[in-house]
Design a protein around this nucleic acid. Structure first.
Length: 963
DNA sequence: CCCCCTTCCTAG
DNA sequence: TGAGCTAGGAAGGGGG
């Protein structure tokens, strides 16, 4: 009796709590969502009652603690109750609640909610609450609500401002803001929490180092920042100081970034809340949980401890990675549309980070399906049950990361839309917040580099969507990005052979044919997991998040700028420097790097390549180039040794006066890079080497993008003085290097020959030093590099990179050569830059022919033979590389026998190829022409000639436009 | 035929 | 309100 009483009481109590907590969420949901949430509320109420009942009645059986929490996580429906595989649950919670709350944070966001008693910050009205999602070392999922962190920004105050001016200004701004809040439905009573007078400096420009008065504007909600900034910028009365238009600082910093920077928290790091400083959500009198995580707690912002990702805090907990793939019942020749075409199968594979294999394979099939060993098959008669069950599966499984191939733009949107069409009300709740509807958002991403890219974004709070297609598009330049091509390239493994056209037929066939489709579907979930594993995608992205200090999801779905901003802010904060908000204006372009005029030709002698390592970062470090060291024209007067004039005419103070922020940031990145390179040198495992290589590349790209950030005119903080100084130094350096080498390494100075810089681009020079062997070239190259380096300030360093022999220089940015980088005996193979062999805007035949010709020329060292056997090359290609049935010789043209020209063979080939992803299905045509003029204006040529300097040759082929 | 523009993709 | 940068070759199109 008593127990039943408790049950009902606690059920009521719980439901009240849930309803209160859900109020705010419901505001943002539509009517439909609200209806659903009411229903869910009812279910939650029952479950909560049951949960509390179990809790109270089994207090002594502590081992059931985990089970209770699991029950609380039960899905809202009951489709699965009989089918739940124990492996689906996360590991149970430890026997006793944790003493300290320690976990790896994977995702950070914030929401506006009601204050929780006992937590810092406002005690009534809406408050911003940060939310950290993560996983403990034991593999339990965590949701931590952090209270008391306040959004803020700064404005520059007029000289002579005093604390007495603050309260009138606060009231002015406060009432202006509240007036703008139409309706003020949340009942905000105070928009401006406070103004603080502080003394800081702008990080833009050196102004003698004096501090200026700034006002720090603390606001009740992050969304008040833009209007507050606008009001202050437009001008408000500052008491007796009159109306002042105040320049804003750091008002364009995202709330989460602000929080991470201020807390010293980097992405994917371990955090800890000490004993007694957090309150686990749970049974009364605790606050009821709102998430699906196993552990949920509240803590004050100040109670969070952040462990730098070093030593024991470098590892990762057993994260759960869910890979998903769906099959649709498409109509003949029509791409599946969720408004019409059913989802017939959903494949899932789940792997723990660090495990070699998935521990769970599951496929949900519409209609019957024959069993599959090693995989669970669940059959459904109705599509809506299938969809609902999948969503419930996701909620039970509680994955940290959702992966797959093109899930971001296809599978997930399709499922969501299909569920909407079929009115599967409980479907779109895929995140970790119980009452939060998963929504689809269109985002356009535009940059000069990548062009315009349209993406869909699924909201699933607390889970990270990691689409392998997006990762590969960003990080690898491939000819084709189909899952099949990519798997073959990286795994030497391919998809199950099921052509698109027969999917519907297989579905409509028998249990056996649906089994075949299920195998195909499962394979498509396994392949992305294997790809991610082989390319160490998770590890390298985690590393990037840690290095640049932003969250994993930021790394995955945003650009380079936000990473630089985060690093800049961290550095600036330590020195009381503030980031101004600059206006975007379409400025004119600035001058970039020098490309040395190539001495075109075929070189049958060793050519030494020397390059400046991390040229632009090292220039910025060597000359202390930064926002904070820029001396504006007509600025403070300084002694002649206190500043430098860059080759572009801009002035910067020396590091003795003030060390720049950017040089410091770069130091951090490059030191991390050299640590990784040391590791790389000791690593034996092929694939771990690839990771480390990828990681050091990522650090290099991060360092290089610091320069790009200063030149990004549509960016957060462009500073062309910095970027044009960097490139101007670079231009000066490469000219100087050429001059130094040619003046010292010559006959007149006692060297065996006159050295010649035959080519160079941005940070590299290719030199003919007059030596006749690779070994000599390496030795002399080292010496030259060391000697030249002495002429430049640290950390600028010219290093020996490799030797080319032979070397074919066709034009700027187009060359090839046989490469020796470590051993003079063993070549590293052909290196080919800019030629059609490495370009993706031609059909594969073109690249193949060019590669074959380059091999003849550079590997077999037989330029004449390359032409004489032109037909043979084609025959080789026909036989070895291409399917004869796919090639048609449409035209055979003249064979010139003029004594001044090499034999010409004009052959027109048509090749049917699977189209490139961005191309249509038209067959591509390649015209291959051999001619004697060089460099040839022909569309395609491989043509040697003999001049006074010896043999010369060029090779290029093009694809004509498809008619 | 030349010149100038755009588009694509690469080098660094 | 979110987007790193410039140089440069190959090729097509349009205008003179």
């Amino acid at each position: 009796m008593g127990l039943y009483g408790l049950y009902g009481l606690y059920g009521l109590y719980g439901s009240l709590w849930v309803s209160m907590v859900s109020m705010v969420s419901m505001v943002s949901m539509g009517l439909y969502g609200s209806l659903w949430s009411l229903w869910s509320l009812w279910v939650s109420m029952c479950l909560y009652g049951l949960y509390v009942f179990l809790w109270v009645s089994m207090v002594s059986m502590v081992s059931l603690y985990g089970l209770c929490v699991s029950l609380w996580s039960l899905p809202t429906g009951s489709l699965f109750v009989g089918d739940v595989n124990p492996k689906w649950w996360r590991p149970p919670l430890p026997r006793t609640p944790p003493d300290t709350l320690c976990f790896l944070q994977l995702d950070i966001d914030h929401y506006v909610g009601s204050p929780v008693p006992g937590m810092p910050g406002a005690t009534h009205g809406p408050v911003p609450i940060l939310r950290l999602f993560g996983v403990t070392a034991e593999g339990n999922s965590v949701c931590l609500h952090l209270h008391g962190f306040t959004p803020y920004f700064y404005v520059l105050a007029p000289q002579g401002v005093g604390v007495q001016h603050l309260e009138p200004l606060r009231q002015e701004l406060d009432s202006a803001l509240l007036r703008e809040l139409r309706g003020n439905r949340e009942g905000l009573s105070r928009a401006v929490l406070g103004l603080e007078l502080c003394y800081k400096q702008s990080l833009l420009g050196y102004h003698g180092g004096q501090l200026s008065p700034f006002v720090r504007v603390l606001l009740a909600l992050p969304r008040l920042v833009p209007p507050a900034r606008r009001l202050l910028e437009q001008g408000l009365p500052w008491g007796d100081m009159g109306v002042h238009r105040a320049a804003p600082y750091e008002s364009n910093v995202d709330f989460e970034i602000r929080f991470m920077v201020d807390s010293g928290l980097v992405g994917c790091s371990w955090v800890e809340v000490p004993s007694g400083q957090f309150h686990l959500r749970g049974p009364p009198p605790g606050v009821p949980p709102v998430s699906r995580c196993q552990l949920e707690a509240d803590a004050a912002w100040g109670g969070l401890r952040c462990h730098p990702p070093e030593g024991q805090w470098m590892g990762l907990p057993p994260l759960r990675i869910l890979s998903v793939d769906i099959e649709c019942e498409g109509r003949k020749g029509i791409f599946p549309e969720p408004e019409q075409d059913a989802v017939i199968q959903v494949g899932c594979a789940v792997q723990r980070q660090g495990d070699p294999e998935p521990f769970l394979r599951l496929v949900l099939v519409l209609s019957s399906c024959a069993p599959i060993p090693g995989a669970a098959v669940i059959c459904f008669q109705r599509e809506r049950d299938l969809l609902q069950s999948w969503a419930e599966f996701v909620r039970i499984l509680d994955p940290d990361i959702i992966t797959g191939y093109n899930i971001q733009n296809f599978d997930l949107p399709y499922l969501l839309q299909r569920a909407r069409v079929l009115k599967v009300d409980s479907f779109p709740f895929l995140g970790r917040i119980r009452l939060r509807r998963s929504e689809l958002r269109d985002s356009t991403f535009q940059s000069r580099q990548l062009g315009r890219r349209e993406n869909k974004v699924l909201s699933a709070e607390g889970r990270v969507v990691l689409d392998m297609l997006q990762v590969l598009l960003r990080e690898h330049k491939l000819r084709s990005y189909t899952l099949n091509a990519v798997s073959f390239h990286f795994l030497q493994e391919q998809k199950e052979d099921v052509p698109h056209g027969i999917i519907t037929d297989l579905q409509r066939g028998s249990a056996q044919s649906r089994r075949r489709l299920a195998l195909y579907c499962l394979k498509d979930t396994i392949l992305p997991l294997r790809l991610a594993q082989r390319l160490r995608v998770l590890l390298s992205h985690v590393e990037l998040a840690r290095v640049t200090g932003v969250a994993l999801s930021t790394i995955l779905c945003r650009g380079q700028q936000v990473r630089v901003v985060a690093q800049l802010l961290r550095q600036a904060m330590r020195e009381d420097l503030l980031m101004p908000v600059v206006k975007v204006e379409g400025g004119e372009d600035y001058e970039g790097a020098t490309v040395i005029e190539p001495l075109k030709g075929y070189y049958d002698v060793p050519i030494v390549t020397l390059d400046f390592c991390s040229l632009y970062p090292s220039i910025m470090m060597a000359h202390n180039l930064c926002y904070s060291t820029l001396l504006p024209p007509g600025g403070v007067q300084l002694g002649p040794t206190d500043y430098i004039r860059t080759p572009s005419g801009d002035l910067f103070v020396t590091s003795g006066v003030r060390r720049g922020l950017l040089p410091r940031v770069l130091e951090g990145l490059l030191e991390a890079r050299s640590r990784v390179k040391q590791e790389l040198a000791q690593e034996q495992d092929v694939f771990r080497r690839q990771v480390l290589h990828g990681r050091q590349m990522a650090l290099k790209v991060s360092a290089n993008s610091v320069y790009g950030f200063t030149g990004a005119q549509a960016g957060k903080l462009p500073c062309l003085e910095v970027s044009q100084s960097v490139t101007a130094f670079g231009r000066q350096m490469i000219e100087r290097t050429k001059q130094l080498i040619e003046e010292r390494y010559c006959l007149r100075q006692g060297y065996p020959a006159d050295a010649k810089v035959v080519y160079g681009d941005t940070d590299s020079v290719m030199c003919r030093l007059g030596v006749t062997s690779v070994a000599e070239a390496m030795t002399l190259g080292q010496e030259v590099a060391t000697w030249v380096s002495q002429h430049f300030p640290a950390p600028i360093r010219l290093q020996f990179e490799k030797v080319y022999w032979p070397y074919l220089l066709i034009s700027k940015k187009r060359y090839a050569g046989l490469c020796y980088s470590s051993s003079p005996e063993v070549s590293d193979g052909l290196d080919c830059k800019g030629l059609e062999a490495v370009r993706r805007d031609n059909c594969p035949l073109v690249a193949n022919v060019v590669t074959a010709c380059l091999q003849r020329l550079l590997l077999h060292r037989d330029p004449a033979g390359a032409v004489l056997h032109a037909q043979e090359v084609i025959s080789d290609l026909l036989c070895d590389r291409l399917d004869l049935s796919q090639l048609v010789i449409t035209k055979e043209l003249t064979r010139s026998d003029s004594e001044y020209s090499a034999p010409q063979a004009h052959v027109r080939l048509a090749q049917r190829t699977p189209s490139m992803p961005w191309s249509t299905t038209c067959p591509l045509t390649a015209a291959i022409t051999w001619s004697s003029s060089w460099p040839s204006p022909c569309c395609a040529s491989l043509s040697p000639s003999w001049g006074r300097a010896g043999p010369r040759a060029s090779c290029s082929v093009r694809t004509p436009q498809t008619p």
